[in-house]
């Protein structure tokens, strides 16, 4: 049995535990990428620890998507540095590494859940193949094992196992999103980036998805950076929040504190304009 398959088997039943729980997983220092005055992001700094969920909220145009792309290694910043601590304890400077190394990271220890699931799935292959791809990329060469893992993750994201051979286009939007999540989680990432994961879904579907995400994040001890314009999503999932406006972080802190007692006038505006049912 390969080392990877052993790893899968041993981690299958217990949540991720980082031996170096006291050390930050992810350190962002004065990061910036601007396309014009106050367009993009600038002067962003924070540390993340394993198992934390950080929400980035703001209206469209605030720069939160730009920030997410920079944080996840997809867009080169024009200022600042990002350091990531790998599972073996090594710390690397994200943008000092090669593109190959960043791509590998995104396929193994990291995950990225796209706003539109079609951007994060292979639409022409089955659900099972979509989930198994990361494992295949890492050298798993046993069809039975791949299928078993795919089934397991379908269960985890509450998709009926009988759909394993169906193409994603036969799935509803909510199911496609859950499939995308499974595709990311199969490699047991330690850090997952999410871009408006519930955007475009019906309210009831959103609610189910959020509940599932919350449980998974807790059970797997995932660190998550989630971008959303929806404060309800932020409140449900995030431990901490950063509020962005016109490329800058105007307020940050614990979610409940920020949402119950916003200090910055812009945050106050955001919070007060949320429609009450």
């Amino acid at each position: 049995m390969s080392a990877l398959q052993q790893a899968i088997n041993s981690q299958a039943d217990r949540p991720m535990a980082d031996e170096l729980a006291g050390e930050p997983l992810f350190q962002v220092s004065d990061i910036g990428l601007l396309f014009g005055p106050d367009k993009g992001c600038q002067a962003v700094s924070f540390d993340m620890y394993p198992g934390e969920v950080l929400g980035i909220v703001g209206e469209s145009g605030s720069g939160k998507s730009t920030l997410l792309n920079v944080l996840s290694g997809r867009s080169q910043p024009d200022a600042g540095t990002i350091h990531y601590r790998h599972s073996d304890g090594a710390v690397t400077d994200l943008y000092a590494s090669s593109e190959a190394q960043r791509r590998t990271l995104l396929r193994t220890e990291w995950g990225f859940v796209e706003q539109n699931p079609r951007d994060g799935l292979r639409m022409t292959v089955s659900a099972g193949a979509n989930i198994g791809e990361r494992l295949m990329a890492q050298g798993v060469r046993n069809y039975g094992v791949l299928r078993g893992e795919s089934m397991r993750w379908l269960r985890q994201v509450e998709i009926d196992e009988s759909r394993i051979d169906d193409l994603p286009r036969t799935f509803s939007g909510g199911m496609q999103q859950r499939l995308q999540i499974a595709r990311n989680l199969v490699s047991h990432p330690r850090l997952v980036f999410m871009d408006e994961p519930t955007g475009g879904l019906d309210v009831s579907v959103q609610a189910r998805l959020l509940d599932m995400l919350r449980a998974l994040v807790r059970d797997l001890g995932l660190a998550v950076i989630i971008v959303t314009h929806d404060l309800a999503v932020a409140r449900l999932l995030a431990d901490r929040l950063m509020v962005m406006r016109r490329s800058r972080v105007v307020e940050s802190g614990l979610t409940d504190q920020i949402l119950d007692d916003p200090q910055h006038p812009y945050t106050q505006l955001l919070v007060s304009s949320v429609l009450q049912p």
Binding site: A129, A137, Q138, Y143, L146
Partner: peptide, 10 residues
């Protein structure tokens, strides 16, 4: 990055 090759076989 050949994961996709085995995807086809799968």
């Amino acid at each position: 990055d050949y994961g996709v090759m085995h995807v086809k076989l799968y």
